[in-house]
């Protein structure tokens, strides 16, 4: 019983961490539902474990083609005024965002 509880707690933490990484705000009541849904997804994907992949080269792209390259030349012109029409806040040519601080602690 106690071991199962510990595992449950751990999974709750995992769900919370995934939410944090995805920048999703979820409350603790929602966690069991997400936990269940994520569990289903993992079970579904887990079926792949049964497939023998020893001699299969990992696929990086579904199309069997290679990258086409462009010449190194400047082809873009300055359109920042146009792009910045979409920005909520601009000053001195800079996009302004809520203050981000690299918090350093001893």
């Amino acid at each position: 019983m106690s071991t199962s509880n510990q595992t449950e707690e751990k999974i709750e933490d995992i769900v919370a961490k995934i939410a944090e990484l995805s920048r999703l705000s979820i409350n603790s009541e929602e966690i069991p539902a997400y936990q269940q849904q994520l569990g289903h997804i993992i079970q579904f994907v887990k079926q792949l474990d049964d497939v023998g992949t020893e001699n299969v080269e990992p696929m990086a792209h579904p199309q069997d083609q290679s990258q086409r390259l462009r010449a190194d030349s400047v082809t873009e012109s300055d359109q920042h005024k146009y792009f910045q029409e979409n920005a909520p806040l601009v000053e001195a040519g800079l996009y302004l965002v809520p203050k981000v601080i690299e918090k350093a602690e001893e």
Binding site: S73, T75, E76, H80, G93
Partner: peptide
């Protein structure tokens, strides 16, 4: 001269966001 995935200039010291 240009960026790795676009044709924007990489020159240093331009006015902010004029090369993005």
């Amino acid at each position: 001269k240009s960026k790795i995935f676009s044709g924007a200039s990489t020159a240093f010291g331009a006015m902010p966001n004029t090369q993005a």
